[in-house]
Amino acid sequence: MIMKWLHKFSSPPYFYALSGKLIKWLSVLLVAFLAAGLYGGLVLAPADYQQGDSFRIIYVHVPAAWMSLFIYMVMAVSGTIALVWRIKLAEIVSVCSPPIGAGFTFLALVTGSIWGKPMWGTWWVWDARLTSELILLFLYLGLIGLYTAIEDKRTASRSVAILALVGVVNIPIIHYSVEWWNTLHQGPTVTKFDKPSIHIDMLIPLLNMAIAFKLYFAIALLMRSRNELLQREQNGRWVEEVLEGK
């Protein structure tokens, strides 16, 4: 049954129409979760005893950091599926994800350094998490650069899938070596960059924001995939009806 559904789902016209509807529904959910998360985080959650209100940046920084890794995983998995089973849809997902991932990584970096400023007085701190995030940004830029540099779309998406696969093997190694490097040079300082003791009122908004960001990723991915599909199948007959419909 699953294969039948998967096959039906992956036929371009069906996917194009379905994703159109999905985007509308998901955006409603996105607004709901975003509102809940922001209201909870900015208003309800008590200020942190140590960092005061500046800790509220956590509601953007941490979900963004989670998303930057999550999207890389999604990209690597869909890239592998595209490489091994040649499923066109998986290929499109693995190709449309890097720009969104890069956006979230950039966001995590910027909000991280803004959050660090009041605490340490400098915009950039060679903290393990921020450094790993910076390296992850380079990986995303590499993927985007590689995809745009290769003309033929099919080879480009397969090359990106390979680089993503190599990346996903290396990310844990890079993360732990940076962590290890950080403890080596910085030593046990008090400005450990971990989250303040999480109080239940603080945690709920964080989860809402995390779900909101995942919904956002789904919407952005669907939008980009529809576009990519349209470009790849522009000679397809079903594109005809789409043009009339619009």
């Binding site: 209100d53 953007v60 966001l107 919407i219």
Partner: peptide, 24 residues
């Protein structure tokens, strides 16, 4: 005012809205 951290909190949220809106 955000307990005196207004600049930092709102700049962080400002950047986030910009990036996320651009992304859509």
């Amino acid at each position: 005012e955000m307990g005196g951290y207004a600049f930092y909190v709102w700049s962080a949220y400002g950047v986030s809205t910009l990036v996320l809106c651009y992304g859509l």
